[in-house]
Amino acid sequence: MIKIDKLHKSYEMGSSSLHVLKGIDFNVEAGELVAIMGSSGSGKSTLLNILGMLDNADDGTYDLDEMRIENLDEKTAAEYRNKFLGFIFQSFNLINYKSALENVALPLYYQGLKRKDRQKIALEYLDKVGLKNWSTHHPSELSGGQKQRVAIARALASNPKVLLADEPTGALDSTTSMEVMALIQKINNEGKTILVVTHEHDIAMMCKRVVNLKDGVIVEDKKVKQNIIKNV
């Protein structure tokens, strides 16, 4: 599903240049649930941004579902993001003045769906994350866990090939973290490819595979015994 080869990325910091990714080779098969771990500064967020087409690599190749991703202009990148990728952020990134339903429907708006269809699909996904009854509520009326579940519903709404989650539990307490991870596991079990960036070991152990990043290179890449969450 994802294939990257010798990926390099450096940032210009004034006169000096910071080499963040130093040749990453990395494949993800369809249906995998991969945790990308690493301390801060290891390059895990940069990797995720490149995978998310929010940032461009300096060197190397990136194929998403056998499609070469390179030299994208902003418009094409936006269309690809919309079609192929779903984002889950640490800080949820919901739009405050829109209801849960409208937030979930937003990617569908950019796909050009009609309002009725958008709302129907959005409601289905809200139902999937267990928030059907909260569809008219605004983010300020939701708890952190609920917000993240709305965000997950939104990421799923456009039926993307890959879900990219950047520290999805970073702003949540341990109980709600469990809830959210349980949801992610459930979605993965239904066949969705998911990448989770985290620096928490126990969160990583809830995935099926852990990739460890240190100083811009992969130091470890192993399948793990998934810690399956039950009864939350």
Binding site: K75, A78, R81, N93, Q111
Partner: peptide, 14 residues
């Protein structure tokens, strides 16, 4: 908000 919209697929034109 505009960043979110663009992450979700809003083109610069939109």
């Amino acid at each position: 908000e505009l960043g979110i919209r663009r992450a979700l697929g809003a083109t610069p034109g939109q």
